[in-house]
Design a protein around this nucleic acid. Structure first.
Lengths: 236, 236
DNA sequence: CCGGGCCAGGTCCTATAGGATCTGAACATG
DNA sequence: CATGTTCAGATCCTATAGGACCTGGCCCGG
């Protein structure tokens, strides 16, 4: 059938051969991840191996491999001989634990990233904050999707800019969960004005080049997000 | 061939049916993990899917799934269309990054775990420190294997005792790397006396029930491990 | 009316087949 | 001698087949 579908190597440096060919399992992984991030797959829904394979027009083998990788991100859970399910909705307790973890990791990331900041990094962060301000904030998901994307990008960029592979891994272990909470926790869009101001404060600290200040600004941001979410008190 | 029939395990199972059947991919995963932890697979060595399948007398499909899960632990790396390799040896830079990450995560774990400590938890930690003291510390790997196991267990228990699933995940993202470093970094056994004393100090802080002190003791331990390793200056 | 057996469809899991690709060595050529 | 070519084996990757298990609907006897 459509064996070596090729089609992916548009990114090659020069013509000829793409340096790294796309494998089907990678494509399936990205497709599933996008579905999860976009909220197309609801919490608790079953993710059938065979069904996903039919839907993407591939065999179950690459789907199985992609799901095995996804399980480690915490966005899907697997029960032996029963299959995979999208992780269930956050409880308030889950949320408190997640914020505790973010508070341990993200301020450190901010300090490390700030201490080795480059002009290029700073521009990327500025772009993220600009996108955050410009993003539409309507009631439907499609409307604030770009807002959530810019928010996630800001935090991820800081993690990557630490240059520390382990801090990136630690943040990645949380990143998917953060996104999941943003989608289903019921908050995240009502506090846009406050959140934007706090992001701006973090950015200012970066611009000033003071790692301690960056760490403090990030800690304050995470604490305030937690505070606002608790105040909103999602009915659960 | 030997489908779900008998023959394969050779483990005389008691009777009836196990409530949760073992899936082959899980068995392969554990087998590979043990090989990696024990150092039977050297850094940089290729881990062939077909070869592993032949060796364990299973088909390549479960091996592929197990390796996909292992990749996320950082202990093996995958290159599309080229296969899996055991992660290479730590450089001094890798080590510095790992210690930075541990310094961000483990003291927080100690504080959280101490603040909700139970007598049962304390006993488990005491047992780990006791095992650490009693473990043989010979030159060959087989001799200090139990030492490394007790060391890893101590830190992992603290992560689990936080009761915070995300801190456990963050630590797990580092745990395999810590183990890898202990095996191949050239240090970890020469500083046993110091390390044991520091573990004892952490344990004492837990016994006193002071989370701040526990956090400080853990931070000091990690810093000193880093300091001793740098002093040893592995030739690299 | 209601509960238990039976069957069909779906799913998971493993094995196997075969195409596509990489690797390394033998070999030819300037 | 150095360099490029060819080829065989190993390996990766995907598709497919089939056994085992679970689920839900249907039928039948009490």
């Amino acid at each position: 059938m459509q064996l070596a579908s090729t089609g992916s190597g548009a990114e090659g440096r020069s013509a000829g051969r793409p340096v790294s060919r796309q494998v089907l399992a990678d494509h399936v992984y990205e497709e599933l991840l996008a579905s999860l991030m976009d909220g197309r797959l609801e919490p608790g829904a079953a993710v059938s191996i065979d069904g996903t394979a039919r839907e993407l027009d591939v065999s179950p083998t690459p789907v199985r491999e992609a799901l095995a990788r996804l399980e480690h991100t915490g966005m899907v859970r697997r029960v032996a001989l029963k299959g995979y399910r999208v992780a269930p909705v956050f409880t308030q307790e889950d949320f408190a634990e997640l914020m505790e973890a973010r508070l341990a990791i993200e301020p450190v990331n901010a300090r490390l990233a700030c201490s080795r900041l480059t002009p290029g990094h700073l521009r990327e962060l500025e772009q993220a904050v600009t996108d955050l301000k410009d993003a539409p904030r309507g009631p439907s998901f499609a409307e604030f999707r770009s807002y959530l994307e810019a928010d996630e990008r800001f935090h991820r960029l800081i993690a990557e800019q630490t240059g520390n592979q382990f801090m990136v891994a630690a943040y990645a272990a949380l990143g998917g969960q953060i996104q999941r909470f943003r989608l289903f926790g019921g908050v995240g869009i009502t506090d846009a004005e406050h959140a934007i101001a706090e992001h701006q404060a973090v950015l200012d600290a970066f611009a000033s080049g003071d790692p301690q200040q960056a760490e403090a600004a990030m800690a304050e941001h995470v604490r305030k997000v937690r505070g606002r979410a608790i105040a909103d008190a999602p009915a659960d």
